[in-house]
Simulated assay, not measured.
Amino acid sequence: MTLTVEDGSIVEGANSLVDLDFANSYHSDRNNTGWTGTDAVKQAALIRATDYLQEKYSWKGCLVEADQPLNWPRSGIQNVANNIIPNAVKQAVCVLALEALTATLNPSISPNGQTKFKKVDVIEVEYFASPFTSTKRPAVDGLLRPYLSGNGINVPTVRV
C-alpha cells in the first residue's frame, strides 16, 4: 500500500497523518533505535498507527468535510486552524508507529469479561465484569489530551 499523507487539505485516499521524513526525524531526535526497517515497513507502521488513532480515540470538534478519509483535519477546536494537523497528533502517530514496529498494535477494544446470567423467577439480570479492556498509553494520551472529547476513548455501546 502506498503512503498517502494528510496535510490538512483533505487529501483523497489519505491513510497517514505523518510522512516518513517527519517520523524519521522524530525518532532520530530521540535516538529511538527500534525505528528500523525498510521505508515500506516504516510506512506500513505509520498507516497502522493512524488506523489506531482513527478507531481508538474520540476527538473534539467536527470533521471539516463529512466524507474526508481521516479524523483530521478538524474544525471547532480552540487555537487549532481547520487546515492543519497539530504537531502533538503527529508525534502521537510516531510513538504508535514505533510500537507497531516493535509490538502488536491493535486498534480494537475487545470484550474480556465473563458474562454472567442470573434468573430469579421471571426476573433476569445480566452482569458484565469489566467488559472492555484498553491498553493505557500515557505518552500518547498525554500528547492527545487537548484534542480529545470526554474521556477520549471510543468504546462500543453495549445494550442489555
Rank of each mutant, 00 (worst) to 15 (best):
M1G: 11
T2F: 07
T4S: 09
T4V: 15
V5R: 13
G8L: 11
I10M: 13
I10T: 15
G13C: 10
A14P: 02
S16M: 06
S16H: 02
L17C: 01
L20H: 07
D21W: 08
D21P: 00
A23F: 07
A23L: 07
S25R: 14
S25W: 09
H27V: 02
S28Y: 11
D29I: 08
R30M: 02
R30S: 01
R30N: 03
N31A: 15
N31L: 15
N32S: 15
N32E: 15
N32Q: 13
T33H: 14
W35E: 06
W35R: 06
T36K: 04
T36Q: 10
G37V: 02
D39Q: 04
D39A: 09
V41E: 11
V41W: 00
V41Q: 09
V41K: 08
A44C: 03
I47T: 07
I47A: 06
A49F: 04
D51F: 00
Y52G: 02
L53G: 03
K56I: 10
K60V: 09
G61A: 11
G61L: 12
C62Y: 14
C62F: 15
E65F: 11
Q68E: 05
N71Q: 15
W72A: 02
W72D: 01
P73D: 00
G76N: 02
G76S: 05
V80G: 00
A81Q: 11
N82V: 00
N83V: 07
P86D: 05
N87M: 11
N87Y: 09
V89A: 09
K90W: 01
K90R: 14
V93W: 10
V93K: 08
V93T: 12
C94L: 00
C94D: 02
L96W: 08
A97Q: 06
L98M: 10
L98N: 07
E99A: 13
E99P: 00
A100E: 01
A100T: 04
T102N: 09
A103D: 15
T104L: 12
T104V: 12
T104K: 13
L105P: 07
N106P: 03
N106L: 11
N106R: 07
P107K: 03
S108I: 02
S108E: 12
I109D: 01
S110I: 09
P111N: 02
N112I: 13
Q114Y: 05
T115K: 15
T115G: 12
K116I: 06
F117Y: 13
D121H: 11
D121Q: 13
V122Q: 12
V122N: 13
V122D: 14
I123Y: 05
V125G: 00
Y127A: 10
F128M: 07
A129Q: 07
S130K: 06
P131W: 08
P131K: 06
F132Q: 05
F132G: 01
T133H: 10
T133R: 12
T133Q: 14
S134Q: 07
S134A: 14
T135A: 13
T135P: 01
A139G: 09
A139K: 14
G142P: 03
G142M: 05
L143S: 01
L144A: 04
P146S: 14
Y147P: 03
Y147I: 09
Y147A: 09
L148E: 02
L148S: 04
S149C: 04
S149D: 08
N151S: 06
N151V: 03
G152E: 06
G152I: 06
G152W: 03
V155C: 00
T157L: 15
T157D: 14
V158N: 08
R159C: 02
